[in-house]
Design a protein around this nucleic acid. Structure first.
Lengths: 154, 154
DNA sequence: TTTTCATGTAACTTATATAGTTACATGAGT
DNA sequence: ACTCATGTAACTATATAAGTTACATGAAAA
């Protein structure tokens, strides 16, 4: 299976939006994420529906965060991209007649649900503000002199 | 991504092998798992390398468990099918230059690793004997009269 | 010793999901 | 009117699991 990297990608994009003065166009954001503007618009449209970002058309248009960084959890973002499948594994049959398979499925299902619950709980604990603070720390470590540096080379 | 159901499928097959007197052919096992014999042979060949099953060619040949049910954990089986990816999500870039992306990746990576560790730990706690006992319980609930029933209709 | 049966394995096809691209409509500002 | 940016449908590319075909290998039975 090709693994889903939308959450990782879109968090990156959101933090860039936060650093950017005024609206960011999907073209600029796509460059930061090294992908196509349509991919950005597609993903961000989900976040717009959830009130995480806003978009404007035309001159001076683009995307802005609709809430404070501290008010956006990874869980919010995950939900806004339509809660993609977390686990790469599955039970072969969802509701098998075979009692052997039922026993197997029940055991696996337990573990799967625990792992999913743990992931979602972690996502709920982390806000974009947390990530932004971590970024600032990394920036200071890398460029100790500069108070507020550039973000990257794109 | 298409989700991996090999673990679920092969556990089912192993328990059927345990119930079956003498060697089970890949054709019989494939019928139980509703798939192709080659798929069974392909997966079981990994388990053979780990000493979980043995196979014999020719008349009266087929597959048998090489160890006691209590000596085979789900973790053993998982490893034997080559430790497939557990999580359906990925970081977009593994070692990004961008500090923003590094902060994002680090946060996600933490959660991902916790979830994976939890799954593997659970797999390590459960043996085929556990699953077999659960199966027996289900059997008794479904057919209270019978001491030792058939397994299923395949 | 030939036939039958079962595994071993390579090569190919199918199915499914993410990601990327093209093309064009819509609407806001200049 | 012209430009810029989003909105979105439709198509293509890519990756991975799963299923299938075909045939070689080797063991037991006839």
């Amino acid at each position: 299976m090709k693994r889903d990297s939308r959450l990782s990608g879109i968090l990156h994009v959101l933090l860039h939006m936060a650093e950017h003065e005024g609206p960011s166009t999907s073209e600029i954001l796509a460059r930061a994420m090294q992908t196509n503007p349509v991919v950005i618009r597609r993903i961000l449209s989900g976040l717009r529906e959830r009130g995480i970002v806003r978009s404007e058309k035309g001159h001076g248009g683009g995307w802005v965060l609709a809430r404070d960084l501290g008010e956006i959890t990874l869980r919010d973002v995950y939900d806004a991209i339509d809660s993609p499948t977390l686990l790469a594994m599955n039970n072969r049959t969802e509701t098998p007649d075979c009692l052997v398979e039922q026993a197997v499925n029940a055991a696996l299902e337990d573990s799967f649900q625990e792992a999913e619950a743990l992931l979602l709980a972690r996502f709920g604990e982390v806000t974009l503000k947390t990530l932004h603070a971590d970024f600032q720390t990394r920036l200071t470590r890398t460029h100790p002199k500069r108070k507020k540096g550039h973000v990257h080379e794109h």
